[in-house]
Amino acid sequence: MYAFEMERPTTVDEAVAALKDEDAQALGGGQTLIPTLKARLAMPGKLVSLTGIDAIKGISKDDAGRLCIGGGTVHRAIAEQGDFPGLAGLAARIGDPAVRNRGTIGGSVANNDPSACYPAALLATGATIVTDRREIAADDFFQGMFTTALEEGEIVTEVKLPIPEKSNYQKFAQPASRFPLVGVFVAKGADGVGVGVTGASEGGVFRWREAEEALSGNFSADALGDLAASADGLIGDMHGSAAYRAHLIKVLTGRAVSAAA
C-alpha cells in the first residue's frame, strides 16, 4: 500500500469538505477499497473515513413506506431488519460474517462492481440514491461497470427503497470469490414487477425488461415461457460463457419468482 493520510470526520459536511482535496477518497467499510489499495490499484493521498459519521448509519421507514438505509449502514444490519425480507436475504449472503460486519451499502452502490448484489435490488425496486447534494433514481445512477452518476467527492448518504409486496434474490455464487456469477432480484410492487440482474453483463447491472413485462401480467415462473435472456454483451470468462450466464439469468429469475415472499 502506498502511504496516505487518514481523516475521520464526524459529520457529512466535514467529510464533504475533506473530500474537496484533489486526491482524497472516501473510505466506507474498506472491504473493497483496502484490498484495492493493497494491490496498488488506487493511490489516494488522503482517505476520508465515513465510519465515524453516525448520521449516515441506521434504518428507518419514511411516510411513503420506503425503507431508508443510511449509506454507512453495514450489511449485517440490513440482513437483520425485518421490514423487507427480500433485501435482508440478499444482505445475509454477501461475503461472510466478518465482511458483513464492516462493509456498507453506500460503499457497495458507489463502487458498482459488476457483480455487486445491492444494485440488482435497487434497480428492481426503483430505489432512490440520496447523496450529500441530490437524489438520483437507480435507473440513472448505475452507468456501467464501476461507473455511477456520482461526482468527485460526492457521498452516498442514504438509499430509499420502496418495499415490494413480494421479492426475492437468487445468487448463483462463484465459489472462489463468493460474489455472484449471476444474481437476480425480483420485486413485485403495486406498479408492476422489477427484475434486476447483476454479475452477467459487460455493461454492469441491468433490468431485464422483457421478463418484467411478462411477469407484470402473470407473476409466476410459467409466465417466462420461452422468453430467453440475450447473450449479447454478457460477460464470458473462465467461470462461465456468455451463453451460460444468459441461461442462468432465466433460471434464477424463475426461481426468484417462485420463492418471492
Binding site: 474498506g30 466478518a98 460486519n101 464492516r102
Partner: peptide, 24 residues
C-alpha cells in the same frame, strides 16, 4: 480479505483485522 486467519472482535463484532485500519 479471503481467509479469515486474522479475525478479531472489534466492539463485539468479528472483523478481518487485515481489512481494517488501526486508526479505525
Amino acid at each position: 480479505s479471503q481467509c479469515g486467519a486474522c479475525v478479531v472482535h472489534v466492539d463485539g463484532a468479528a472483523v478481518k483485522a487485515c481489512t481494517m485500519f488501526a486508526a479505525e
